[in-house]
Design a protein around this nucleic acid. Structure first.
Lengths: 204, 204
DNA sequence: TCTTTTCTGTGTTGATCGATACATAATTAA
DNA sequence: TTAATTATGTATCGATCAACACAGAAAAGA
């Protein structure tokens, strides 16, 4: 218990959540420190004392995002009984999450920092790493489907994971354009329409 | 011929192309005026005299992009003999264009300005309008397939257009993550795997 | 109580943002 | 030649950026 000194007067986790929402709506470079401090309800020295820098705050915010907003989607992927249901749940939950009107549309990991820059290299690299982890999770789940006999032995789990991950990325932009939940489900239906062909045998 | 006054010493179209490349790589807000003027080989007063403002320059650059980089993809969509070939060409040409190593990866229209802001409303709206036009072009081509008997009468051209447009959007992010041409073609194959199911009858 | 430690609010830092003022150069029209 | 017009280069504008100096306030340990 290192409770020496004057105690913090704000809730660090609540402030982090506010920061996450600002980054989510504006992106890394679009979120100014003044907007962040205003949303977090603190002054900038408090922010720097608690989080270090804008970059460190963003990295912590994306981690928080992964453990809160993104958790159920990836949990469903693991827990669904079949690979097909896993992908369908994964995409359906994505559609629901991306269209919620009480928060920014689309995904922070996908949209947070797309444009590389000498001063933003670490940010881009971190998000890219998280997206790569997502691809790996999809691939592993599909490979489990092969191992369990649900999918044929020559099923290309990596290519299929790439496809479904790309669909999810596209849904972020679709959601940013104001797509409704139903419109996103149309994309999910399209992606799942590929399942029969992909799972049927060797890829065309 | 209004050739009064001192003539311009730089090629306006060449400078516009350079500006397009900077916006393409950095996004609207990530492209600074100093980077733009450096790439265009002119000083900032010349830029403002020739293009008006950063915002006007961006709008002109995206229009230039549509008429150059994006032209062949949408031309192929119209000219392919069947709707299926049209979509396949559309996606395959997208895969080729997005992975070219001698220019920024992905699409300027898709990635140029995703985060709304009070000061960037016109930019976002313009790109959103262009993306909506793309969706319309896909839908029209699919509806032609219905009219020509290639696709069933109950084919949902709007939903299918949404799906294929979303896949293309996702490919922009995939390309930004460094995906190879072959990796993008895996996504194309996935999307085309949905064709048989979508074209087969009523959507599931 | 007194020292140490940590947090908070005010005010400000140098750098960079997008955008111009101004004087000069280069061209056409008269 | 002269006046009118437009482009160029230098040097900056006020605003905003991320980040911090500093003094006072609030807690713990002695």
């Amino acid at each position: 218990m290192s409770e020496r000194g004057r105690p913090r007067t704000f809730d660090r986790t609540a402030a982090l959540r506010r920061a996450m929402e600002v980054f989510w709506a504006r992106g890394y470079e679009g979120a100014s420190m003044s907007e962040l401090t205003a949303a977090m309800g603190i002054n900038s020295p408090s922010l720097y004392a608690a989080f270090g820098s804008k970059e460190a705050l963003f990295l912590e915010a994306t981690d928080f995002y992964s453990h809160t907003e993104g958790a159920d989607i990836w949990l469903a992927l693991e827990e669904a009984p079949t690979a097909r249901q896993a992908i369908e749940q994964f995409l359906s939950l994505t559609a629901r999450a991306y269209a919620q009107s009480d928060r920014p549309q689309g995904c922070l990991i996908t949209l947070g920092a797309l444009h590389q820059d000498s001063s933003r290299g670490a940010i881009c690299d971190d998000l890219r790493r998280r997206r790569a982890e997502n691809h790996t999770a999809l691939q592993k789940r599909l490979e489990r489907g092969v191992a369990e006999g649900e999918l044929p032995a020559d099923f290309d789990a990596s290519a299929a994971a790439t496809f479904f991950a790309t669909v999810q990325h596209g849904m972020s932009i679709q959601a940013r354009d104001g797509a409704s939940h139903n419109a996103l489900l149309a994309t999910v239906a399209g992606a799942m329409a590929a399942w029969r062909t992909l799972a049927g045998g060797s890829a065309a």
